[in-house]
Computed example of a mutant assay.
Amino acid sequence: GFCGIFLPCLLACKVGVEYGECCCVPFLPGALVAMRTGLREQLRIKGCVCCDWVAFCCCCPCALCQMARELKSPC
Rank of each mutant, 00 (worst) to 15 (best):
C59Q: 05
A68M: 01
G16D: 07
L11A: 01
C51H: 09
V17H: 06
C65L: 12
G20H: 03
S73V: 12
R36C: 02
P26Q: 09
C58L: 10
L71Q: 03
V15Q: 02
C65P: 02
C65F: 03
P74I: 07
G47Q: 00
F27L: 09
C23W: 15
F56G: 00
A68F: 05
E41L: 08
G1I: 05
C60S: 15
G20K: 01
C50F: 12
E18H: 10
K46Y: 06
C62E: 11
G16W: 02
P8L: 06
P74W: 08
L28H: 08
D52W: 00
L43H: 08
C22W: 10
C9M: 07
A63Q: 01
P74H: 14
C60W: 04
G47T: 00
V25W: 09
A63G: 04
G16L: 00
C9Y: 12
F2Y: 15
F6V: 10
C48N: 15
C75L: 09
V33L: 01
Y19V: 02
C50N: 12
F27I: 05
V49P: 04
F27V: 03
V33I: 15
C58P: 05
P8V: 12
G30A: 02
Q66M: 12
C22M: 11
F2H: 12
S73K: 08
C13W: 10
M35A: 00
F2S: 10
V54Q: 07
C3E: 12
A68G: 01
C22F: 09
V49L: 12
E18A: 14
M67K: 02
K46P: 06
F27D: 04
G16Q: 00
K46S: 13
K46Q: 12
C59H: 15
E41T: 04
S73T: 14
C75N: 09
C48D: 15
V17E: 11
L64I: 05
C75P: 09
I5D: 13
D52V: 03
G47D: 05
P8K: 05
L28I: 15
S73C: 15
V54I: 15
I5Y: 11
G16T: 03
A31M: 01
R40N: 07
V25C: 07
